[in-house]
Nucleic acid binder design. Structure first.
Lengths: 192, 192
DNA sequence: CCTATAACGGACCGAGAGTCCGAAATGCAA
DNA sequence: TTGCATTTCGGACTCTCGGTCCGTTATAGG
């Protein structure tokens, strides 16, 4: 059922997200994408931006969501290597590797979001943590929940984009990081 | 050799550091300690603060340094358990545990410093990383430098104060975290 | 006592997140 | 068609905070 009187139609969120996406993709130095810049690029008032997304983190999370949708879909529907054909440990490793590559591909957006704090309370982190924790509990035949919670946090903590950038700056290649991370993932079921 | 003319004597850095320390220790919600507040608490102009420490991070690093001095001393002079009486692995674990407890004890200061980004380039992080890397290379009888660099970063990444706070909020006790971290430290020499 | 020097300190500035309110756009009723 | 209620728009404005600038003040030497 609709209201009797409709009023001025709202602008589509799509355009604002696309404008933000473009700015983050183009941004040379990270962190320079302001809300004013996004509003201007989207040809929209700043008030509209804040009404639509609440605050800066809301916008970044929404943009993050659109980027993460494909991976989320693949994981939840069980597309290989996230199905039963792979071992739980392989799924864990594939999951962490996917997130690593995802963060590198969207580094400016991720950098902006991770810089503002409160990331650990964000829905995306919670989702990643829940998934990681589940993979761990499936991979290791034990039910020590504290261990799974802790290990999931720890595995994800190595994926902060600042840390990745620092390691790349120190000469480690992406492939090296992926290889070492995979090895570390295997170690999860050995530690008690 | 001295200058011919001396000019107005500078204020002691000590007082400013003490004022900042007090504010961080008292601060209820983290991140609320501004430079103005520190200047006021130290009965000093803001300009003096910035002239003395360069910028906010400089002040936080200086305060961090005073707090970390004891641990740094113990590690570099080889006081037990950082001497030869302990195995390299035990030293690594003791080192990580010391940093964990240090961060918890100074959580507001650490939170402020870790929130501003650029932590990975700070001298304290570089010191911790270098030490951790050395312990790892001593503990595992191998010379894969990439492995040591990566593992040191990863071990330290689990010590971000936000992450610690989040784990505590999720019900993990400090002792549980210490125990799991120690177990993870042991895992370092098993993974290849 | 006067002058050169060096540091002080708070008024000031710039940037950026978030707010506020008059303007604009729309549908419905008369 | 016109007027009105309603809903959203949008950019000027506010607020906070890190950082700067420059007139003021303290000191030592001549």
């Amino acid at each position: 059922m609709q209201h009797k009187h409709r009023g001025r139609p709202p602008v589509a969120l799509q355009g604002m997200l696309e404008a933000a996406d473009m700015l983050f993709a183009q941004s040379k130095l990270p962190g320079s994408v302001t809300m004013d810049a996004i509003a201007a690029a989207a040809s929209v008032g700043k008030g509209t931006l804040f009404r639509a997304f609440g605050n800066r983190d809301g916008l970044l999370d929404a943009l993050w969501a659109t980027k993460l949708a494909i991976l989320k879909e693949r994981v939840t529907t069980g597309v290989p290597p996230f199905d039963e054909s792979a071992t739980p440990l392989d799924r864990l490793i594939a999951f962490l590797d996917s997130i690593l590559m995802f963060k590198i591909a969207n580094r400016h957006l991720i950098h902006a979001r991770e810089a503002t704090g409160g990331l650990l309370q964000s829905p995306h982190y919670r989702w990643m943590h829940a998934k990681t924790k589940n993979f761990i509990m499936e991979a290791s035949n034990q039910v020590d929940e504290d261990y799974a919670i802790y290990s999931a946090h720890v595995l994800l903590s190595a994926l902060h984009i600042d840390l990745i950038d620092e390691m790349l700056a120190q000469g480690l290649s992406v492939d090296t990081i992926r290889r070492l991370q995979a090895a570390r993932g295997k170690g999860v079921i050995r530690i008690v």
